[in-house]
Design a protein around this nucleic acid. Structure first.
Lengths: 339, 339
DNA sequence: AACGTTACCGCAAACGTTTGCATAAGAGTA
DNA sequence: TACTCTTATGCAAACGTTTGCGGTAACGTT
């Protein structure tokens, strides 16, 4: 397409000044007289000069681009975090580029390398669900700051911005105990999911704390957290001869599925079975009864992650140490546990 | 952070070759012997050479970055389109950068300029809701290809990827007529919303076609489409002494709010009042009764927009002409209009 | 023996910007 | 007058890459 870009050279020529003077004038260098500055700026305006970021970045060894890698942008919690990141980045002079991995570790590696090659200043990322080989991340970490959020791994020695999953889950289960529930089931993901295991941890801790037995038949796992899986597993639970009186779902999607099934079988919520979810997704106030759920402040996660990123970029230390930034959650109590 | 980047110079030195030979070898230029190529590539590998994109882009006047501007990434339909765009961009060697406008025209202008200054090859954008001054877009169009999607404006002479809003709405209303409804209300946005007006257009056309009167009291407008506004306006409608027997909502959010209110007042859906929405958002199968809604293939929109963008970038024509790419929608009939 | 081809490769310029250093003019001081 | 010190400006190199052009050697063709 079009070119006709104005350069410093043209401004200089039209003003009978040198390129360096023009450059300095535009950058408000002290060496330049006010009058010259004014003239230069006016001429730049007139010629619609826009600095060539490429040349500038090339010269100064700076791209001012921060890479963001997430499994999927349509995931609502991810989107919330993204919003936090974008909002924060607007305040700075850093631009962001976003890429998806679709939970594919192979893709994850590719994207990571592409970004590095592109010269990003740092990388903010949520790991894909089944990432096992962390070497791509370790490799990246050798060249640039890397910050993990949401889906993290303690094996990677970098800053991690997370919610206190254990406490959050414990809090949710505690609430169920408080309203008098004794047989609390959990629907979780399989063992290789970091977040899921942490929440499971909180579940177990709370049961122990209240001397409630941990009943294997009430612990259900599945591959992907979806509404359909929630439906299916709920059906399993209500077929038990010794039914649960509450179900703690480690995601809202599970919970939505569970509620759908319970309603289908005319089981009273929360009287017969209470349900709590995790995320406070927009679905939780659409479903009836409204879902009690753990609110994760995604925006705040994004914001903090971005702030930390800037800090790491602009410091010249070497950031190869683990550091965990934990964010508090709160339980939002709605009809699915309380009438 | 770290630097120690390897450059062509270093490879050249270590191999006793000239920089240009190394460059050509890595780019598989015909002038270079296979043996040299092999040696160079092996050395590049060994030294972990990554080309400096900045220098390259600077030299070749190419960034290979495409800018994406949307009101908000958390909006679910936007996210779907985004996914389509990202998916398509992965197949190419273009990178994308995403920015939000938060429906603020001022911000929109800023972001647009920043992207241009950054040297993006083209811009994919959904206008903010209340953009009135189109001069920033016209200005951008003079420098780079611009493609609009979702929220577009026919006043901007560029390619626009849209759904056939009129037909989609007409189709939805037609369905209501077919199930025997005669007093069909519409909940829409105010006049300055392009999409809303188009859908309103389809609504009016269909009523006329079936010789149904257009009753002003059944036409409700509001500023922002939200669940709460849907609730509020539904209440207005059911307070009418001559109630509607169907409500066509130009967004799913409106429809969700409407359904909530109707249920609250124990109005039977769809027998007394049927409801149809627009977007097929994930909410539409969470709410009960499930919502009949217009399915907009967001992924396809994104994909086509991206493909067209590549075409415009790589062609050297001047793209200042309007061109509309229309995408077909389909109505998904669920419980809110049909039992 | 002289010439044309072919296959490889290097030189050096160019892209637009920043910046260390040099320089010039004027002001101040002795 | 001669000097230093400011203040304001220009020169030129540098960043890493690509690329037009030119060069050289080796080989085949007359």
């Amino acid at each position: 397409m079009k070119k006709e870009t104005t350069t410093l050279k043209q401004i200089a020529a039209s003003l009978n000044l040198s390129i360096s003077t023009v450059s300095r004038a535009l950058n408000d260098h002290i060496d330049i007289s006010e009058e010259t500055k004014r003239k230069v700026k006016r001429e730049a305006e007139r010629l619609q000069y826009v600095p060539n970021i490429l040349a500038k970045g090339f010269r100064k060894h700076k791209t001012n681009i921060i890479g963001i890698i997430v499994p999927s942008v349509i995931h609502s919690f991810t989107a919330t975090i993204l919003k936090g990141i974008l909002l924060e980045s607007e305040k700075t002079n850093y631009t962001t580029i976003i890429a998806e991995t679709n939970n594919n570790p192979e893709k994850e590696k590719d994207v990571l390398n592409t970004m590095l090659q592109f010269g990003v200043e740092g990388i903010l990322m949520a790991l894909s669900k089944h990432t096992r080989d962390i070497s791509p991340m370790l490799h990246a970490l050798k060249k640039r700051p890397l910050i993990l959020f949401d889906k993290v791994s303690s094996k990677i020695p970098c800053t991690q911005v997370v919610i206190d999953e254990v406490a959050a889950a414990a809090n949710a289960v505690e609430h169920l105990v408080n309203i008098g529930k004794k047989r609390i089931a959990i629907i979780k993901e399989r063992e290789d999911s970091y977040n899921s295991e942490k929440r499971f941890e909180g579940y177990k801790q709370t049961l122990k704390k209240h001397d409630l037995p941990i009943d294997e038949s009430l612990i259900l796992s599945t591959d992907d957290s979806s509404i359909n899986e929630g439906k299916r597993l709920a059906r399993e639970l209500i077929c038990l001869k010794d039914k649960p009186d509450a179900i703690f779902c480690i995601t809202d999607d599970f919970a939505i599925g569970v509620i759908k099934t319970l309603k289908k079988f005319a089981i009273k919520i929360p009287d017969e079975i209470a349900v709590v979810g995790f995320s406070n997704s927009s679905h939780s106030t659409i479903i009836e009864p409204n879902l009690t759920t753990v609110n994760q402040p995604g925006g705040r996660i994004g914001k903090l992650a971005m702030q930390q990123m800037i800090r790491e970029i602009e410091s010249n230390e070497v950031f190869g140490t683990s550091k965990s930034i934990e964010i508090q959650t709160n339980l939002i109590i709605r009809e699915s546990t309380f009438l």
